[in-house]
Amino acid sequence: MNIGHIAAETAIAAARQSAEAAGVTAAFAVVDTGGNLVAFSRMDGATLITIDTAIGKAYTAVSVGADTIHLTGAIQPGAPLFGTGLTLAQTRSFVPYGGGVLIRSADGGRVIGALGVSGAPSSDDDHAIGTAAAAAAVAPVEPAEPVAPVAPVAEPVA
């Protein structure tokens, strides 16, 4: 099961609201379980590096199966990931800083994607914004009205 576009947009809207409340301009990215971008938004005034960083944080979280805040110890001097920092590899960037948060389904906690947040003064702040927003992504949504079937188009008469 993967996150859908509506849930991804819900997470981004919640992240934007949290960032605005904190006085932060940031970028937000949601990826599915394969690390593929589902939705993205960058607030006016957020620096350009936040684009790749937000996408990379989301990709990293879903790739390692954990929130990226848990990698903080591993990137410190003497730790196994020291020196990796921000490793850009096009759309598959490894970004071991806080702000990548797993999004889980409401039924059983399966991972359905991840949200990346970049732009706050610290990775801890990015993580806090992302954590609150990820919870909003799985909140129950009212079902849409059923769509009436479309009548078939008649064949032209020769």
Rank of each mutant, 00 (worst) to 15 (best):
A54M: 08
A74E: 14
S63N: 12
I129L: 08
T33I: 10
P77M: 12
A128S: 12
G113M: 02
P149W: 07
N2W: 01
G56W: 01
D124K: 13
T131Q: 15
S118A: 13
V141H: 14
P96N: 07
P140Y: 08
M43C: 08
S118P: 03
A151F: 08
V38W: 05
V31M: 05
P152C: 12
A66I: 06
V31C: 07
D125S: 13
A89W: 07
F82K: 09
D52L: 11
L71H: 04
A8K: 00
G83N: 09
T50Q: 07
I12M: 10
E142D: 14
G78S: 14
L86T: 06
A74N: 10
P143Q: 10
A11I: 02
I3N: 05
A14G: 04
H70S: 13
I112V: 07
L81G: 07
P146Q: 06
D107K: 14
G108N: 14
Q90V: 07
I129C: 05
L115K: 00
E142F: 14
I51L: 15
D107H: 13
A22Y: 01
V95Q: 05
G99Q: 01
A8L: 05
K57V: 02
R110E: 15
H127W: 09
I75A: 13
I12C: 08
L81A: 11
I3Q: 04
A19F: 00
S18C: 10
L102T: 04
S118M: 02
I103D: 03
S18Y: 06
A15R: 02
R42S: 06
I55C: 12
P143K: 10
A11S: 01
L88S: 05
M1I: 06
E20Q: 13
S41E: 15
N36H: 12
